[in-house]
């Protein structure tokens, strides 16, 4: 029996004359994620003419191409025929411990999230901080990691109208995902709190703190501890704590 191909496991969607989306599913799932990463690796190795950039996401691979060099149909045909057997999801490498001041000015949606989940704010915080999250992908903003999975009761849709300005360091969630906004940005996620940790720093050797496959744990801190850590971060003297993955 012939080995499976990408075409057996994905569908191809159009994203204008500069992008082809290779979609493996419509959910957040470690197996789907592993297929995305594997396909990205094969396309990178094939060094296809006119393919300018690959952006892996949870469930699909965005293939950017230059329409003056190649065409959607050409690259679709090549990618569709690539062999793709089942690939294992890999384990977390290590877990970053991220201090968070929940609620207050930095967490204007905490009350709504807790109310929708039918629990007190303290219980919502304990639940959110009680999980170890997997970094599925980076995107949306430099260094913005998509962390999953958010505990079931805290899963809320995005705001109907995104906020025009979400401050850097905001700890937010929507649906299955949790994240930290690395930069000030517009955004539609629900804000639970804030962290002083820098998630993207162009001067750093590794500009993005997170990489896919890392783990993240949120550690609640009070105002005083937040201020102390914020001062260290401003001076560039704060080292984010790490624990080994279980």
């Amino acid at each position: 029996m012939a080995a499976d191909t990408v075409a057996d496991k994905a569908r191809f969607l159009s994203a204008g004359d500069g992008g082809v989306v290779v979609e493996f599913g419509d959910t957040v799932d470690r197996t789907i994620s592993a297929r995305v990463m594997k396909t990205a690796e094969m396309i990178r190795d094939a060094a296809l003419d006119g393919v300018t950039e690959l952006v892996p996401t949870f469930r699909s691979l965005f293939v950017h191409y230059d329409p003056t060099i190649t065409s959607a149909s050409t690259i679709t045909d090549i990618i569709a025929a690539m062999p793709l057997d089942d690939v294992e999801a890999s384990a977390m490498r290590h877990v970053w411990r991220i201090p968070v001041l929940y609620g207050g000015e930095g967490g204007p949606d905490l009350a709504d999230v807790a109310a929708t989940a039918g629990m007190s704010e303290a219980d919502a915080v304990a639940l959110h901080a009680g999980s170890v999250y997997n970094v599925y992908m980076l995107g949306f903003l430099p260094g913005f990691g998509y962390l999953g999975d958010t505990p079931e009761p805290l899963r809320l849709p995005r705001l109907e109208t995104p906020r025009v300005r979400v401050p850097a360091g905001s700890v937010a969630l929507t649906g299955q995902m949790t994240a930290v906004y690395p930069l000030e940005s517009p955004g539609g996620w629900r804000l639970l709190g804030k962290t002083p940790v820098r998630f993207f720093d162009i001067a750093a050797e590794r500009p993005a703190l997170l990489a896919p496959g890392d783990g993240v744990r949120f550690v609640p801190v009070d105002d005083a501890a937040y201020d102390d850590i914020a001062a260290l971060c401003r001076e560039g003297r704060y080292e984010v704590e790490r624990e080994d993955a279980a």
Partner: peptide, 29 residues
């Protein structure tokens, strides 16, 4: 579930009004 975005993508959030994404657009959404 967030996926990749090309320059020129037109997204329609819950406001049901379109937003055309230009050069500084986010990479995924």
């Amino acid at each position: 579930v967030s996926d990749g975005i090309a320059t020129g993508a037109i997204q329609v959030p819950g406001s049901r009004l379109p937003i055309l994404l230009l050069a500084d657009h986010q990479t995924t959404g």
